[in-house]
Design a protein around this nucleic acid. Structure first.
Length: 456
RNA sequence: GCGAAUAUGGUGAAGUGGUUAACACGCCGGAUUGUGGCUCCGGUAUGCGUGGGUUCGAUCCCCACUAUUCGCCCCA
């Protein structure tokens, strides 16, 4: 059997409906924030990511899907969204031909060659936002508020927003030196990974899991103490705006992000539901003034974030949030004989064109089988055709909940359904007709009699 | 890149070195000659991830591989 590539997933059925629901919500939310959707290629010249994300980051050095195309060009499947969008911003001269600031959002798949585990796939879907052309602290705060509001709208409760500031390039470099000097004499007391980090990215030592209780770490100098006045002021402003936007946050001086391009504001939103794996960052981002320049564009301040949809779905699942996805059918048309089926085909089509969600049988089931199928599909109304009725230009409609059935003239069906399905109430799964046993049966349906008696 | 666990039908799973691999759910059909959801009956794996080995004989023992899951690293 051919299997899917490692770390990838097939999303289908009810799961797919949930994804679609979330995607629609994202689209409508972004419309309100006046961000426009941008779709960039799923692969780019490798250079885009090498220059954009930094040659030393793990993501670029050992986690990309690289290939040489038939024209001998070095290509890379995008491991994240920002670099490609900045490339597009520059190439399309958006700084000149779109209203400033340029507000873009994306929602697509990213690729990282990693060992899969809970919350980490090789193909992942990220929704993210880039706001280019504003250095206003309000833009930082607003960008942070977007995923927070999305999560709120979906009903997530167990989330935590952490923010920090790395300061401008000057502050960041200054801090980096201070940190190196501080750690150097203690190097042998740190874990192996930290010794590695000391060379490559000393800031990351701060959020080491192994050494997190090590006093050396606890007493390490804090980013915030090394911000210059301007950066400090800026951070204060961001916090004020966050309060104005009613975003609950906590300042985490140890928060540093992995990608090279961040400066000033950085943030992470963590899931804190019981059962979430160790990769519990739902979304993260920050300011990346300087990246546009780095990719040969004009000096342009920018902020953005990205959040993993897969992780979001995990969080929704663990918080037992039921998304209001339509998982039912409004009308199931039943037909057995050839003439019935023929009429059904026409009828089903016209009902669909009128806007109803309609199903019928395609496997030559008997009437009984069709009733069963209608239940499986959670049909709200059943249209039952039979040759006798059809001869009189009539058909039967049955409310699958109350079991009331009536005979209608063929021409009246549409009006009837229009009337009756006006309120789009979802199929009630818990509704079951009272069964004829005397409370003694062991049926696993939710017999109403049993409910009333307080039984299972 | 490193470490650990797991691998039986559509699903959840039991199980044994040796005749027909439990059970439950699901699905299909029948009892009910076209109005069901209960009940009853019947059907549903050329066979226990793949390839080797041990053995008279392996799904069950050994090895390798692969896949999945979880953790480290890293990251959303």
């Amino acid at each position: 059997m051919i299997t899917k590539p490692k770390g990838c997933h097939d999303i289908y059925g009810i799961e797919a409906k949930k994804w679609q629901y979330v995607n629609k919500l994202i689209d409508s939310l972004m419309e309100k924030y006046d961000y426009t959707f941008i779709r960039t290629p799923i692969f780019e010249s490798s250079e885009v990511f090498h220059r954009g994300m930094g040659d030393t980051t793990d993501v670029v050095t050992k986690e990309t899907y690289d290939f040489v195309d038939r024209g001998d060009r070095n290509m890379t499947l995008r491991p994240e969204g920002t670099a490609g969008i900045v490339r597009s911003y520059i190439e399309n001269k958006m700084y000149g031909n779109m209203p400033n600031p340029v507000k873009l959002y994306y929602n697509g798949t990213m690729y990282r060659y990693e060992r899969p585990q809970s919350g980490r796939d090789r193909e992942l879907t990220q929704f993210g936002v880039e706001l280019l052309g504003s250095d206003d602290p309000l833009s930082d705060a607003e960008v942070i508020s977007i995923p927070v509001n999305l999560y709120k709208m979906l009903g997530l409760k167990e989330i935590k927003v952490k923010i920090n500031s790395l300061g401008d390039t000057e502050s960041r470099n200054n801090y980096r030196d201070v940190l190196k000097k501080y750690f150097e004499p203690h190097l042998s007391d740190l874990c192996e990974d930290c010794q590695e980090r000391f060379m490559k990215n000393p800031l990351r030592i701060l959020d080491c899991k192994v050494d997190k209780d090590n006093p050396i770490l606890k007493n390490a100098p804090k980013t915030l103490d090394y911000l210059n006045e301007e950066s400090k002021l800026r951070f204060e402003k961001v916090k004020e705006y966050l309060q104005a936007l009613e975003v609950d946050y906590e300042v985490d001086p140890k928060l540093v992000r992995g990608l090279d391009y961040y400066n000033h504001t950085v943030f992470e939103i963590e899931a804190h539901v019981e059962g979430f794996g160790s990769n519990n960052v739902l979304g993260a981002g920050g300011r990346y003034n300087g990246l546009v320049e780095l990719l040969d564009g004009p000096v342009t301040p920018a902020v953005g974030f990205a959040c993993g949809i897969g992780r979001l779905m995990m969080a929704l699942d663990l918080e037992n949030i039921d998304l209001p996805v339509k998982n039912d059918v409004e009308v199931f048309v039943m037909a057995v004989s050839d003439t019935e089926k023929n009429y059904a085909a026409t009828l089903v089509q016209s009902l669909r064109m009128s806007g109803f969600r309609v199903e019928m049988d395609y496997t030559n089931r008997g009437l009984k089988g069709q009733f069963k199928q209608a239940d499986n599909l959670k049909a709200k109304y059943l249209v039952i055709l039979n040759d006798e009725d059809l001869a009189k230009n009539e058909l039967k409609v049955k409310n699958n909940k109350t079991k009331e059935e009536l005979t209608l003239g063929l021409d009246y069906l549409l009006y009837y359904l229009d009337e009756v399905l006006l309120e789009d109430e979802p199929y009630d799964e818990n509704y079951e007709k009272e069964c004829s046993c005397d409370g003694e049966c062991h049926h696993d349906h939710n017999c109403q009699k049993h409910h009333e008696e307080g039984e299972e």
